[in-house]
Design a binder for these strands. Sequence first.
DNA 1: TTATAAACGAGACGGTACGTCTTGTCTTATG
DNA 2: CATAAGACAAGACGTACCGTCTCGTTTATAA
Lengths: 205, 205, 205, 205
Amino acid sequence: MSSTPVHRRRPALSNPRVQRTRARIMAIARELLPEVGPTGLSYALLAERAEVTRQTVYRHWPSRAALLLDLILEGPDLGDYPEPGSDVRVVATAWLKSLRNGTSDPATRSAVLAVTAHADHDSDSAQALARLIQDRRAALNVLLEPAGVHVDDDEFTLLYGPVLARLLIDREQVTDAFVNVVVTQWLALLDRAGAASRSHAAAGS
Amino acid sequence: MSSTPVHRRRPALSNPRVQRTRARIMAIARELLPEVGPTGLSYALLAERAEVTRQTVYRHWPSRAALLLDLILEGPDLGDYPEPGSDVRVVATAWLKSLRNGTSDPATRSAVLAVTAHADHDSDSAQALARLIQDRRAALNVLLEPAGVHVDDDEFTLLYGPVLARLLIDREQVTDAFVNVVVTQWLALLDRAGAASRSHAAAGS
Amino acid sequence: MSSTPVHRRRPALSNPRVQRTRARIMAIARELLPEVGPTGLSYALLAERAEVTRQTVYRHWPSRAALLLDLILEGPDLGDYPEPGSDVRVVATAWLKSLRNGTSDPATRSAVLAVTAHADHDSDSAQALARLIQDRRAALNVLLEPAGVHVDDDEFTLLYGPVLARLLIDREQVTDAFVNVVVTQWLALLDRAGAASRSHAAAGS
Amino acid sequence: MSSTPVHRRRPALSNPRVQRTRARIMAIARELLPEVGPTGLSYALLAERAEVTRQTVYRHWPSRAALLLDLILEGPDLGDYPEPGSDVRVVATAWLKSLRNGTSDPATRSAVLAVTAHADHDSDSAQALARLIQDRRAALNVLLEPAGVHVDDDEFTLLYGPVLARLLIDREQVTDAFVNVVVTQWLALLDRAGAASRSHAAAGS
DNA sequence: TTATAAACGAGACGGTACGTCTTGTCTTATG
DNA sequence: CATAAGACAAGACGTACCGTCTCGTTTATAA
């Protein structure tokens, strides 16, 4: 069996040399990932391409999961990030397109899939994945605050589920039309839920 | 890079010895997969646990993808398979629960995720995944035939997407309640689509 | 710290392929040792030069000590091995020259020194060294049997000590003349010891 | 291969701070050496234990050989150093015991063995070893001057050889009794040599 | 019932990768 | 500005797994 990696302090990002090295490795990793896949992205290959020692890569990311996570978090520039608003349809559509754009980057998609695949057996990955989802949901809720809407777990899954399924499993483009269908569906759900709670409230009065 | 695997004839399943060996390895693989994860399921480990030579495993499955695929296809007994019917809600619910049950088996889930993760870089996996999805959709359409309903790509994704997202990404139980919500949503979608095509037809007349 | 090496079966010498591989590696090691020294004789270098994988070298010798020991034991051909006889001087001289010849081979000398140096901290090396010495002493005693002489620890050290010191520490040739001086000395010691035991016996009568 | 070490000025011993640092490192090295062996005594470990930067150790001893040599030369306190005298037996015995005492210290023994083992491939070590031996011989000759005796190479090796062999190779205690036997032997040799030269002189006249 | 073909066990081998360690140099920040 | 902390390149270590290749042995089918 492989021994558990020793916990070791990671290089201080304040150091400009460290920043340079880290940035170069991340860039190469982003290039390489779609080419060779997450399992093919070995420290050996990464180090060679980045013209860096394996040891250096280990110093920055003690495990592949850590590297993949950073790749997801510091994804490529996604263009305009959606802004809060009171029109639920507009906000939800903007958020969903932003999700789609982020996840359409091949490197990011690879990384997400790899982390997801490891989540069952690697608690680090599981935690990272969970945090990722929670952050996205929190972001959506912030955007929807002006509209006085708060999405719960089920509603959230119903919104992003179809889009990610299309991207990751169907492995096809997520068109604007598809996004519109999903959002339309989802608004109907919210309406029903609102009506239910209203009728519930009415019945309770 | 590793050298290209030589194409080699796989053992004939007609031979009872072959069947025994194959069955034992598959069983062990199913046990092991949730424990160690898809990448941890090495030929070496598998062979050792199954008390078989590595060579033997290679003879049966020339690549890990092939093994994983077999694991998915010959999943554990799923209980009653849904039957065709004219009530769309009933049929869709049954199908969705069957999907949930199949994918809830840890070994199967692991295998599906692994295949999905490799699909970007391994055309074999991509093909296998595509076929898997198509088969499921075809099965659903067969079930819905009596109801006179045929689901297209988008509708299909909207049906299974939330369930798989809940299972694979949220990594939580898919409750019957959640299934009901998804189906209710989905029926509304079908209605809208039907109305649209009807009005379309009316306008066209 | 590195984890303790796993105990693993070494290749069966009955296999001719194994013999070939082993012989080639040993030959290369013998060549390399005097060039680069015991610490410079890395598994990496050895494997490269022998055109063999590092893993193969590990399979044959799980530790450097094991390899060095084999190098000592299967030294180069030493020429005629001394024969037993009743003339103590002749036998002792022949044995000592044989020791000298064996230890004069640069590779063997390097190996002996390395094993000796590690004996303090590596019980394997210590044991090997001890066995080496004991074997040599036993061999000498066999040769001297016809002469009715048995050498004890102190006597043995007095015989081989000066020769090894000259070789390993003075790092100079051991001439036949030097061997003769040592043997002459040593015979005087035996005489004295014999006289002492005789007088002892006489006193006891 | 590693790049050749750059020649760099070593700290001035006149500086008291330098002395303190140097003394602490040496002490730690002396402690560590028997524990971990000469190859295990890495600069990294040494620096860590001495609570000093690796750089600092490098500054003091540009190579391991240099450190080991210093360890040998500045061995632990040997007790009374023998004094010159006219009784050859007394002087030789005292000198031999002093040699034994010095070499019995585990750290020193380790260092001596390491230097010896490297002498074949590292000219620095070879030189250091040679100087060490010469110094010891010179010291003995100084002690023996009052007795009018001068030992040559062969005689010297015959005196110290058995003792070092017992210590380093047999890896056993050198008892006073053993020292006495060696000295007795050795005196007989001197006698014979003296007689030979006398008879030689007589024959030559 | 015995060939004969295939599956299987055993394991050596060349590779690649892993995660760790040490070494010697070089950069950066700090006093 | 001299010195520390420590990042980095280079490379070895011992291990694991991979895919292939013998070579015998066992099992199943066919003659």
